[in-house]
Structure formats: C-alpha cells, structure tokens
C-alpha cells in the first residue's frame, strides 16, 4: 500500500543522504522524495512517498526514527490529509490552433501558462499526482518537450500537525 511519510529533520548536510541511503540499503521502495528547509532554518521537512506491506512500512518508520538527524515523523496516510505535487510542462505550440487548444486544456485543469514564446508555452499545474497524470494524458496530442515534477508534498488536515 502507498504511504506518505512526513519527516522533520535537522537541516544539516548529509541528512538527506542518510535517508536516501537507508532506503537503498534496506531495499525499501521510494516513489518520490521532496525536501526543503522549513520556516525554522535549522529544520528541514521531507515528504517521502513509499509503498509496502504494513510490516514494511512499520519498519520504515522505525528505521527513520532511529536516524540521529530525524526529529519526528508522521505517516500522513493514517490521517485525513492533503497532498500536492507541482509540474512544469514545456509544450510546443507552433502548429495552427495549438495555442488556443493547449490554453483551453490548461484552463480546464486550472494550470497557468507562466512562459510564452512564439513556439512554446510553459504550463504550471498543481494537484494530486493523478490530476497531473490526467493533464499529461490530455496533452498527448501535442509535442511536449519537457516535464518537471516536484514529487509529493503533504500535510494533515485539521489539528494534527508535525511540529516540535
């Protein structure tokens, strides 16, 4: 089963490789991993999307907790939560009619065109992974040049908060 694990860790060099190394050393799946400093610059927050049986995910959370740099973590899958992923997509629009059609699709998916040239658009779109997949599918008839996806970020709804 797919799990989203949010991790608060010391914002120190090497902390990321400790987490990445743990996953590869123990053979755990890692679908995506995003990390950035938080409002407290000594802290980084990481969102890891992984999958495995309940036993494996239990081991993953225990092994993460065992890393000295990890302060706290939360398996968001256990709570009502929101997840978002962002993508930037560069698409060629120099065939007649493509500019209008791609703009319409972007509007339908609430994407924004953030760069325009005579030949290309860059579209920014945010949502759950499945929405991003659907948008990319809708863009299939058009020559997509590049896709950058951020990986998943997540946060729990309501009072549940991952903080120290």
């Amino acid at each position: 089963m797919r799990h989203i694990i949010s991790v608060l860790l010391e914002n120190e060099s090497g902390a990321l490789s400790r987490v990445a190394g743990l996953f590869s050393a123990r053979g755990y799946n890692i679908e995506s991993l995003t990390v950035a400093p938080t409002d407290d610059p000594t802290l980084a927050r990481m969102t890891i999307v992984t999958s495995g049986s309940e036993e494996i995910v239990e081991q993953i959370t225990k092994q993460l907790n065992k890393l000295i740099d990890v302060i706290k973590l939360l398996d968001l899958t256990s709570y009502p939560h929101i997840e978002r992923e962002m993508a930037m997509i560069k698409v060629s629009v120099d065939e007649p009619g493509d500019r209008e059609e791609v703009k319409r699709l972007a509007d339908i998916f609430r994407g924004r065109i953030i760069d325009v040239t005579r030949k290309t658009y860059v579209i920014e779109i945010t949502g759950e992974g499945s929405k991003l997949d659907a948008f990319l599918e809708a863009l299939e008839p058009f020559p997509v040049q590049e896709v950058v996806r951020s990986g998943v970020m997540g946060i729990a709804r309501g009072d549940v908060a991952l903080q120290i």
């Binding site: 036993e55 239990e58 081991q59 225990k62 092994q63 907790n65 065992k66």
Partner: peptide
C-alpha cells in the same frame, strides 16, 4: 531498547 528490532523478523 531498539524499537526497530521489535517485530522486524518475527511478529
């Protein structure tokens, strides 16, 4: 003392 040792190999 190590929670990760519990239920790792045997439930």
């Amino acid at each position: 003392v190590d929670p990760a040792s519990i239920s790792k190999n045997v439930k």
